[in-house]
């Protein structure tokens, strides 16, 4: 009796916490989406948000503090940190999105095949994913990036592969669940070919968690890419990306804290915003 009552109470409690989570999200979601809009705008149209040129060096305003001449201060070449951040957004987003897409495609395919075929294929692919998972994502990306050498494409590949295990696991788990659903059984019993059952009935019902994971992965990919850049494995261009900016500011941290601090804040805000948006998406897509 006590147990049954407890179960009923727990069910009720779960509903209650779910409700409160939604009402908090409504407020923070607005901020998250607004921030993401700013980042996307910066990546798309950097010239509109930052009026001065990011490549012009200005010896007259080297290492000025925030507010003196520019809003967020200047670096040791006299470039505005704000301008650099705005221009660096594109690199961050391109790498984040492309790496996520790559990881999602490879990972989902691996998960789909493993989950659908089961048996030996599942075992083999599962072990492969397990091996990848042994390494922390950043380390894996680090190894791949240093093996391939520094270029945008290689950075995308490195970060993308580090995201593969997550997608593979999520997709495999989802396919395993959906494969057992009655409507899949119904489709099989109707005599449809396996390909059709997979593409029409299993896949569409399995993608929701992957979509949610993808939003979160965009955030982490931006961080991983920034970390690699920070360590000098990124692409050397005239305009530093966020990771390089962080690294660049490091020697000046004692005197000119703003060079590293603002990229750090921007990076953090972006990741938080993306994962909150992912939370919201999860509720909207009704993923268990």
């Amino acid at each position: 009796m006590a147990a049954a009552t407890a179960v009923a109470e727990a069910t009720v409690l779960r509903h209650r916490t779910w409700r409160s989570r939604v009402s908090v999200n409504n407020v923070t979601l607005g901020f998250s989406l607004a921030w993401l809009a700013v980042v996307v705008a910066a990546a798309a149209l950097p010239g509109v948000l930052a009026t001065d040129d990011a490549t012009t060096l200005d010896p007259t305003r080297v290492l000025t503090a925030p507010g003196e001449q520019t809003l967020l201060g200047t670096d040791h070449y006299g470039r505005s940190v704000l301008t650099l951040l705005v221009h660096g957004a594109r690199a961050a987003l391109v790498i984040g999105l492309a790496a996520t897409l790559l990881g999602m495609l490879i990972g989902s395919l691996v998960g789909l095949v493993a989950g659908y075929l089961g048996g030996a294929a599942d075992m083999l692919l599962g072990r492969f994913v397990d091996i990848l998972m042994c390494f922390p994502g950043v380390l894996l990306a680090l190894v791949i990036a240093s093996a391939l050498g520094a270029s945008t494409t290689n950075l995308i590949i490195a970060v993308g592969i580090s995201a593969v295990p997550g997608f593979a696991r999520v997709m495999r788990g989802q396919v395993l669940t959906i494969r057992g659903r009655l409507y899949v059984e119904a489709a099989r019993s109707a005599g449809f070919a396996p390909g059709r059952v997979l593409m029409r009935h299993i896949l569409p019902n399995s993608v929701a968690p992957t979509v949610v994971l993808a939003t979160v992965t965009v955030g982490t990919s931006v961080v991983v890419a920034a970390s690699l850049s920070f360590l000098g494995l990124g692409v050397r261009t005239e305009i530093p990306d966020w990771g390089q900016l962080l690294a660049m500011g490091q020697p000046y941290l004692a005197g000119a804290w703003w060079i590293s601090t603002f990229p750090g804040i921007v990076l953090t805000l972006t990741v938080i915003a993306v994962s909150l948006a992912g939370d919201w998406l999860r509720d909207r897509l009704d993923v268990d």
């Binding site: 009796m1 147990a3 049954a4 009552t5 179960v7």
Partner: peptide, 27 residues
């Protein structure tokens, strides 16, 4: 006292019948 439709899910899976009954009795 109440008895529910799903007897299996009304019992806590991680405790033995004895400990669940004892708990009820002690109350």
């Amino acid at each position: 006292a109440m008895v529910f439709q799903e007897p299996l899910s009304s019992l806590d899976p991680v405790f033995t019948v004895e400990s669940q009954l004892r708990e009820g009795l002690r109350r």
